[in-house]
């Protein structure tokens, strides 16, 4: 049975991460002002992906968990990604 206190994330790290996340949000808003065409969607999703990686790894503590948790989360993200990809393939090339 596990009764350990576990890994403690310092306040400083959390403040650092949240500052980064806010800056990325502001960047994603600023980027929409520039007309990049189809790249706009891509950049918006790329920034969202970077932000969620920080939330998952630091806030949700995934970086300090065992490999078991990391593999499970990656598997679920992969399932969603594959289903979106296949659905769009169907609509793009029907």
């Amino acid at each position: 049975m596990e009764h350990d206190k576990g890994h403690i994330i310092p306040y400083r790290t959390l403040l650092f991460v949240v500052t980064g996340l806010i800056m990325l949000t502001l960047i994603s808003v600023a980027v929409t002002k520039i007309h990049l065409g189809t790249l706009t969607v891509f950049t918006a999703l790329l920034i969202a992906a970077i932000k969620s990686a920080f939330v998952l790894m630091i806030f949700m503590h995934l970086k300090f968990e065992t490999r078991f948790f990391k593999i499970m989360v990656l598997a679920v993200i992969a399932v969603i990604g594959v289903v979106i990809f296949i659905t769009l393939l169907d609509y793009l090339y029907r």
Binding site: I47, A48, S52, V55, L56, H61
Partner: peptide, 26 residues
């Protein structure tokens, strides 16, 4: 407490995608 945190972060995570997809399409 950790589990409630995980739930709250997930809600945050979903919004991270909802925000650009609904508000930032130009």
């Amino acid at each position: 407490l950790e589990n409630s945190g995980l739930y709250w972060h997930l809600v945050d995570l979903i919004w991270i995608f909802l925000f650009p997809l609904f508000y930032l399409i130009t």
